[in-house]
Design a protein around this nucleic acid. Structure first.
Lengths: 321, 321
DNA sequence: TCAAAAGTGTTATCCTTACACCCATGT
DNA sequence: ACATGGGTGTAAGGATAACACTTTTGA
């Protein structure tokens, strides 16, 4: 396969046309006290990241290095999320391509004390419309008219209809059901509608009519949205929640963690049965009285299950509402 | 986030340490006469690919360009598969990093006549153990003893047990069920067991005891395995099969396509009902007599469904066996 | 005693699976 | 007539969802 030369003489700054900088970028997730969190650096608006360098054995190991250096956190479970490579990812003006390979990492907060300027931010600060554990969040009523206004601002009828449809599906308007996995679609809509600060840099400098959720640098918030969507779908078909749990835990703690991630309440009795009948966990024999109320059985994850059969995750036996 | 310099003075050939070549690589899939095919160039052992260059607006558009140039095929549906970036991806000796962003593309063969040296290869030529439409394929009986031999070749008991477990789960040994989505795990096993030609280059030049399936260049066969696994799982939760269908089709043609992809037979009556009740298709009103037997209703995909609600794919109502 | 959390049991409903059977056409 | 594919009906079994109810602790 002979690829002919692709440089077109446009080179500035003596960079060969087909060489590229690669950044590794991490969405590190933990759940603390029923709040799902991402690890940030700087003004809580930046994800840990760093260039992929020759001495890195693999991108994963490079990522571990950068995150540990920038935040003091060692990483356990890592999976690749998506590779972002559009031309104007960083600065459209510069004739240098920057692509970002993003990863989702799952840990627990306790694994190490924080270091330099870094911290855990609840992901619902960036996506306040995503938390439905206490019913439909108020922001949604604020967002709705703005989204409709944006939809109706389209020039032709077809686009208007299509925009209203997209918004209705993604946000569950018009008596549709809320689907927690559509996090990315929802972020894209509020972005397109110009309702987040990040959208302002693309347009003429008119400030957005409404700033929904906390700002993040560049496209980091989109990357977090991608991670949330992936995680919300993945917990249902692979037992990854346990990466976020301490070695022993009660079933209610497990439930609260799943609820935190999915942003929805689930039915306790049914949840317990699902977990137990799948043999994902086993009793330690101990109980704890620290939860208030009747002492709870402590469980641990049955790592052995991973060697026994391809194993599903935790379905969400939702409570109606 | 100030990333400190990462170059270590090891540079050869004046390449800055953190610049990287990026290849775009495509697994282009179509289904012809109930055979799932991938588009190859060269000796039917290479996937279409090319470097990501500055003039490409996005990696997707770059990929379209390369594939069209190398094979004459325009691409429709594209999705990102995975980014491969391990140090020794191309040549461990060279101090140049090459990463590959891989994509899955779905088309139909008819869309354009082939061009230069390219062609459609049934993917079961590369993965003969993956086709279970006529029952368990004979290769599996050949592979099994070799896999067991490999497992028992491990030095310690723990590894031996673990290898046997992995093989049993992935291939459905010991009365386990066949799981068509484990294509990548299966390829990794035959690779690790040294049963494919590709594995030879890593080891001392001893030829493999058994060459299972057709060879592909570098890690292209692994990339195809990744694509098959992704597609087999994706058709179940998103209606992507229709990208592979002509504009109008009979329900049996649709069924044969799903069967070709999943490598399993499915139950006709139940399949029809699933498809129809989900309103994924609508009758054109026409019938065709070209299928032999009673003339069949022709259907078309209801594109509108995509705007109506988040829509699932085609479950597999398997026939027992 | 009450609140809070831990647990158990039971039922209705829906989806999946299995399978028996009839229909329409060409040879 | 029969082979081939098209197409319908139905019933059993399992998974899910809903919810009523009991138990055990601490304040």
């Amino acid at each position: 396969m002979d690829h002919q030369a692709t440089g077109t003489g446009k080179d500035r700054g003596a960079i060969k046309a087909d060489e590229v900088k690669v950044d590794l970028i991490a969405v590190v997730v933990s759940v603390n006290d029923s709040e799902p969190c991402v690890l940030t650096i700087g003004q809580a608006d930046t994800l840990p990241s760093g260039p992929f360098a020759l001495e890195h054995r693999s991108p994963q190991s490079g990522l571990r290095g950068w995150v540990e250096q920038q935040t003091g956190h060692p990483l356990g479970y890592i999976e690749q999320l998506y590779t972002f490579a559009d031309r104007d990812r960083i600065g459209a003006a510069r004739q240098q391509r920057v692509i970002a390979i993003s990863y989702l990492a799952l840990t627990r907060k306790e694994q190490a004390a924080g270091s330099p300027k870094c911290g855990w931010q609840s992901w619902y600060e960036y996506f306040p419309w995503e938390d439905h554990r206490s019913g439909t969040p108020p922001v949604l009523d604020v967002l709705r008219p703005h989204l409709i206004e944006w939809a109706d601002g389209a020039s032709d009828t077809a686009t208007r209809r299509e925009r209203r449809q997209r918004a209705a599906i993604a946000f569950g308007f018009d008596d549709r059901h809320w689907n927690e996995e559509l996090t990315l679609q929802r972020y894209e809509l509020v972005y397109e509608a110009g309702l987040v600060q990040e959208a302002a840099s693309r347009r003429d400098a008119t400030p957005p009519p409404l700033v929904a959720g906390k700002f993040m640098v560049a496209d980091h918030r989109r990357i977090v949205a991608t991670a949330i969507a992936r995680l919300r779908s993945k917990i249902k078909y692979r037992p990854v929640v346990f990466e976020l749990m301490p070695p022993v835990f009660t079933l209610l703690q497990l439930q609260r963690t799943v609820e935190a991630l999915s942003g929805r309440l689930i039915n306790k009795p049914n949840f317990r049965r699902l977990i137990e009948q799948q043999e994902l966990v086993e009793k330690t024999g101990e109980t704890t009285a620290e939860t208030g109320g009747r002492p709870a059985q402590l469980y641990r994850f049955r790592h052995a299950i991973l060697d026994e059969r391809p194993v599903a995750g935790t379905k969400l036996p939702l409570t109606r509402g």
